[in-house]
């Protein structure tokens, strides 16, 4: 289509408002975070340039290191357990068993509920006095396993991870849609070659939905690095900072007016996120060349 003079004016007028907002809330803040991470700054008095001191202090702090490790565990759990589970369920639902649409609706339901509401719900589940989990253990006669799940050092972090890892709806829906878009012909050809249903899943479906699996793994890991609400509400990093994550660490430093230091944490979050995204792509791209 030819662009006329009137179109040019229209395009300019249409681009300015959204791009201005994007610049103000994406480009400017990201640059701002990078620049101020090299300053000691409390938000009130003048900022002092300290070069890499914020970063050095970050790596020296065992709580920050713990937070990074927790985030990495979280991201790996998401990518290596949550997404494969979602894939398994998507494969089952793609055969359209009875009521598959109802299952799909139910699986996705937790995704539309806010993280904070889910976290509150699970804090009542885990509660040591009236919680549902201890009650369930009581019903089946395993009273000796009842404990304060979120207050015990050994169980706090696993408890945070586990409740959330089985919410697979988001990735399941993405993979399922990709599977259902595969042409029937592939399966007809495979069954003529004598492949049974499982072989068809392994050798026809999986390679064809590879891209959406990679997408899901990337998204799952990125979400794993961003965790905040759940931790903030369920444990607030405790006991003994064992369950801290990077965003919570950033939030607490910000509350202490260590703005430059908090932004150094933000930069680390962006860098780790970028490494994960690029890493996942590289890992799966290289496999493509081999085969």
């Amino acid at each position: 289509m030819k662009t006329t003079k009137g179109d040019k004016l229209g395009i300019t007028l249409f681009l300015i408002p959204p791009l201005a907002l994007f610049a103000l809330f994406f480009i400017y803040p990201v640059s701002y975070v990078f620049v101020t991470s090299f300053f000691k700054w409390d938000g009130i008095s003048d900022a002092a340039f300290v070069a890499f001191q914020n970063y050095l202090a970050l790596f020296k702090d065992p709580i920050f290191r713990r937070s990074v490790v927790n985030n990495v565990i979280w991201a790996l759990t998401a990518g290596l357990i949550q997404v494969p589970l979602a894939l398994l369920v998507a494969l089952i639902l793609s055969k359209k068993p009875r009521g598959w649409k109802v299952f799909r609706t139910v699986y996705f339901m937790p995704q539309v509920i806010s993280g904070i509401a889910l976290a509150t719900l699970w804090s009542t589940m885990y509660n040591s006095e009236y919680g549902l989990i201890n009650a369930l253990l009581g019903v089946v006669g395993l009273e000796h396993l009842q404990k304060n799940w979120l207050g015990t050092t050994q169980t706090a972090f696993p408890a945070l991870l586990i409740y959330w890892v089985f919410y697979i709806g988001y990735y399941m829906v993405i993979i399922l849609a990709e599977i259902t878009s595969i042409s029937e012909e592939y399966y007809e050809a495979a069954s003529i070659d004598g492949a049974n249903k499982i072989q068809q899943d392994l050798y026809v479906t999986l390679p064809l939905v590879r891209n959406s699996i990679i997408t899901c793994i990337t998204l799952a890991m990125v979400f794993g690095l961003r965790q905040f609400e759940q931790v903030y509400l369920l444990t607030n990093g405790g006991p003994a900072n064992k369950t801290s994550v990077m965003v919570l660490y950033l939030y607490k430093e910000m509350q202490n007016n260590n703005y430059g230091y908090a932004n150094a944490t933000g930069v680390m979050l962006i860098i780790v996120g970028t490494i994960v995204i690029v890493g996942v792509r590289k890992l799966f791209a290289s496999k493509q060349y081999e085969s």
Binding site: F22, V30, Y32, V33, R226, Y251, A262, G266, I270
Partner: peptide, 24 residues
Amino acid sequence: IIFVMFSAGILVPLNALMVPYFTI
């Protein structure tokens, strides 16, 4: 460029931008 920036924008961890959002 808009396309690339918006793609990056989807993946940027917004939680890392608490301080600038607060200041802005």
